[in-house]
Amino acid sequence: MLILTRKIGEQVAIGDRIKIFIVDVKGKQVRLGIEAPQETPVYRHEIYQKIHEENRAAAQIEAGVFEELAERFG
C-alpha cells in the first residue's frame, strides 16, 4: 500500500480523473473532498461493505420462502 503524508488543502491524484482533497483535520477525523468520474461510485467503505453483503443475501431469496412470507405482510 502506498502511504502519503499530505497537509490540509493539498491533494492526491489517482490517474487523470480522480482527485482527493484534504479539506480538514480535526483530532482523529479527516474530511476529504473527492472528485471522481460519474461512473465511479464513491462510498464510505464500511457502509458499502454492509450494503454489498445485504444485497448478496437479498439476491439469494427463494421464490417459495418469499411467497409464504409475502402473504403475511401488514
Binding site: 457502509i47 450494503i51 444485497n55 443475501a57 437479498a58 431469496i61 420462502v65 412470507l69
Partner: peptide
Amino acid sequence: VVNIGRQDPPEITANLLA
C-alpha cells in the same frame, strides 16, 4: 431492497439506507 433473515422463524427486512 427486501431481505429474508436466516433466523427461525424468518423475518423480512428492507434496506432503507440504500
